[in-house]
Nucleic acid binder design. Structure first.
Length: 527
RNA sequence: GGGCCCUUAGCUCAGCCGGUAGAGCAACUGACUUUUAAUCAGUAGGUCGAUGGUUCGAAUCCAUCAGGGCUCACCA
């Protein structure tokens, strides 16, 4: 049973909360005062199904959810989150790294929901990726409604908006044309018909537009002039107009997006106004940087993938990363993981003693949608890394033994939480610490002390108590007249464990074994 | 070059509807003959990117500049 830390907040508390999700929520409130509808307030996130969901997808949904929950607390209003998939978009190029390249090559420019699934498991390429998106979001427990662009068009949900765009055709063109290059300007159309003969999404000019009938005339790929209704999926809208049209049709009240889309947002805002709507609230979050502070690009493969993060730390730690400073470009690389992981636990611990606006501004309130868990692991990531580092990976039982000694009062739940951390720490150690471990040779004094300790441990065998072993360690140090006994320990850790600190030696020896410990020491002395 | 965003202690970040700069970690000092990133006590460290302005008063508002990021053909 997992328990939550539930706190009650007054409207004053919410009003005083200053963290960015609350500020965003207040912007949304301002918008809601303008549009005044009584239905659920609609939040939207976007997804492009030409590739699998990634860390940016997670960030957008996590951050949007944070604003959503803050808004709910501030207003008490009902909300929905739409995870929208742009699966009617044409496939511009065959995505690399998928099987059956030649098969897909025959479907260029066709809607992604028409392109066959290269893995053969779903109705289409887009269906495959859409399923991935849902599994991905479900894995984190996000609350959302999946909406497919193709379904919206085919089921006629966007018909009215398509026709609205035709009615406001001049205004829309006036907004779009100045942003286009000369060549594109000549053939630009906000409405993209789907060719009835080839099935491709056509980027062709409209020869005729009849808003009253909802019909357009254009030239098909074979040169034939076609007059068609735009309804029911016969046509779609092009990018910025599509975005605006979707806001209009679905009544989107809030959507955030990456900084690279700043200009698109501006244009789509103007377009939705031309359609007679009010742009949603939202802001542009910053992109992530890699180790060297360069922009992360999927094709370059720098930076870090979400699976990689989750190999070494919890989704909560990733949420914390997303919570912090969304408007500053931040380094997203492996070396931030241990710090963020422990900051998460520190925030969670602090939450227990906070209340009012302070608690609402605590990241864990946002990460856990108002319900942070009560259980803290009895040891944090840095400590576990240290322990793993001492006895090597694959010694999980040993680590558990340590944790039980370290926190005798730890509950089963806490130990379970620690288990997860042990796994993470083990992996992190193998990948990032082990390769960089540096064992230094002992100096003469250390050599003497270590030799004495090893001999003593062998003599005592496995029957000694923790205290006996601990005393043996001290005796070895004292015999060498260390003025500060800590120096002896420091030296011992550096020589034997390859790091400046380590586990308490008595319990370590008891759990790890006296003979095994003596062997560690002997091995170190051989260097 | 135009537009938008960012720049607070060594590091990670908080503070920003104006009222003599904060946290954690790192550093340093002291205590502790038993050390679990030890612990405890304490110290130091920032002209809040720079310069002007508004103000009795600015990290907080305005302007300019610098550095970094994104964007300004096509596609999304």
């Amino acid at each position: 049973m997992s328990a939550y830390q539930i706190k009650n907040f007054t409207s004053d508390d919410a009003g005083d909360a200053k963290s960015w999700p609350f500020q965003e929520a207040r912007n949304l409130i301002k918008r809601m005062e303008k549009v005044k509808h009584n239905g659920p307030v609609v939040f939207e996130t976007g997804y492009g199904p030409s590739g699998p969901p990634h860390i940016g997808t997670f960030g957008e949904v996590a951050r949007t959810t944070m604003v959503r929950r803050a808004f709910e607390l501030l207003t008490g209003r009902e909300t929905r989150l739409i995870a929208f998939s742009d699966d009617m978009d044409g496939m511009r190029k065959v995505p690399p790294h998928v099987p059956n390249q030649e098969l897909l090559a025959g479907y260029l420019q066709m809607p992604l929901t028409v392109v066959p699934d290269p893995w053969g498991s779903h109705a289409s390429f887009a269906h495959h990726n859409n399923a991935k998106l849902r599994a991905f979001l479900d894995q984190f427990g996000f609350d959302y409604e999946f909406v497919s662009s193709t379904d919206c068009y085919r089921e006629g949900k966007f018909d009215e908006t398509l026709i609205r765009v035709m009615e406001r055709y001049e205004a829309v063109m006036e907004i779009m044309l100045p942003t286009l290059g000369e060549e594109r300007r000549a053939s630009y159309s906000p409405i993209l018909p789907i060719s009835p003969t080839t099935g491709r999404v056509l980027y062709v000019p409209m020869l005729e537009i009849d808003a009253a009938k909802g019909e357009v005339v254009y030239q098909d790929e074979d040169g034939q002039k076609i007059r068609t209704s735009v309804r029911g999926g016969a046509a779609k809208l092009q990018w910025k107009v599509d975005w605006a049209g979707r806001w209009h049709a679905l009544g989107v009240d809030y959507e955030m997006s990456g900084e690279d889309l700043t200009e698109s947002v501006r244009l789509s805002n103007r377009i939705v106004m031309a359609l007679g709507g009010e742009p949603p609230a939202g802001f542009n979050y910053q992109l992530f940087l890699d180790e060297q502070g360069k922009k992360i690009s999927k094709t370059k493969g720098n930076g870090i993938a979400i699976e990689e993060w989750l190999t070494y730390a919890s989704p909560q730690s990733l949420s914390l990363y997303m919570f912090q400073n969304p408007k500053a470009a931040k380094k997203l690389y492996f070396d931030v993981i241990p710090k963020i992981a422990d900051e998460y636990w520190a925030h969670l611990e602090k939450y227990a003693e906070q209340d009012g606006a302070k608690a609402l501004d605590n990241p864990v309130w946002h990460i856990h949608e108002g319900k942070p868990p009560t259980v803290l692991p009895p040891a944090n990531f840095a400590m576990l890394l240290n322990l793993v580092s001492a006895c090597g990976a694959g010694e999980e039982a040993t680590l558990r033994g340590f944790i039980k000694k370290y926190r005798p009062g730890a509950s089963a739940e806490e130990l379970a939480a620690a288990d997860e951390l042990i796994t993470f720490a083990g992996r992190y150690f193998e990948k990032f610490i082990k390769p960089n471990k540096t064992f230094r040779p002992p100096d003469a004094r250390e050599q003497a002390a270590l030799a004495m300790l090893s001999a003593r441990l062998k003599e005592m065998g496995e029957a000694g108590s923790e205290d006996d072993y601990q005393t043996a360690v001290f005796d070895a140090g004292k015999a060498q007249n260390y003025e500060n006994i800590r120096d002896w320990f420091k030296g011992l850790y550096e020589v034997v464990f390859g790091q400046p600190a380590g586990p308490r030696m008595g319990p370590f020896t008891k759990i790890y074994g006296a003979a095994a410990t003596a062997k560690l020491i002997d091995d170190a002395l051989m260097h």
